[in-house]
């Protein structure tokens, strides 16, 4: 579930970065149109991956529900981070991925 959450977080982060205001805040300058399209395109497989993980762990019925809950919570986590600890938004994604990888190894 942590891995699914990590991918959901990455997906909403990509969608968020595809917007001028947030891209400017986390990087320097506005994103090029190509870059924005790419970010949006990347978000899709990430979401699908997160959904696939949920379904693998909990079957279709519950998997879809889990995934929706994770997406909502990932968005909330991202926005709250952006509001108070903006610089942590990107490292948090890495942290989530690393810790989910660790739980798989352990």
């Amino acid at each position: 579930m942590l891995t699914a959450f990590a991918f959901a977080y990455l997906a909403v982060l990509a969608l968020c970065l595809a917007m001028n205001r947030h891209h400017k805040a986390l990087f320097t300058g506005e994103p090029s149109p190509l870059r924005r399209q790419l970010l949006r395109l990347v978000a899709l497989p990430l979401m699908a991956l997160s959904l696939a993980l949920c379904i693998r762990d909990a079957d279709v019925e519950l998997g879809i529900l889990f995934w929706l809950a994770l997406l909502m919570l990932a968005t909330l986590a991202l926005v709250l981070t952006l509001a108070w600890r903006q610089r942590w938004a990107m490292p948090l994604a890495g942290l989530l991925l690393v810790s989910s990888a660790l739980t798989h190894l352990g």
């Binding site: 529900l65 889990f66 809950a69 994770l70 909502m72 909330l76």
Partner: peptide, 22 residues
């Protein structure tokens, strides 16, 4: 059943708690 969150164990209960507080 979707409302009462008796499926999916503590994970779902915890999600509902957070979303309810939201």
């Amino acid at each position: 059943g979707l409302h009462m969150a008796q499926f999916g164990g503590h994970f779902v209960r915890f999600c509902y708690l957070l979303l309810g507080l939201a």
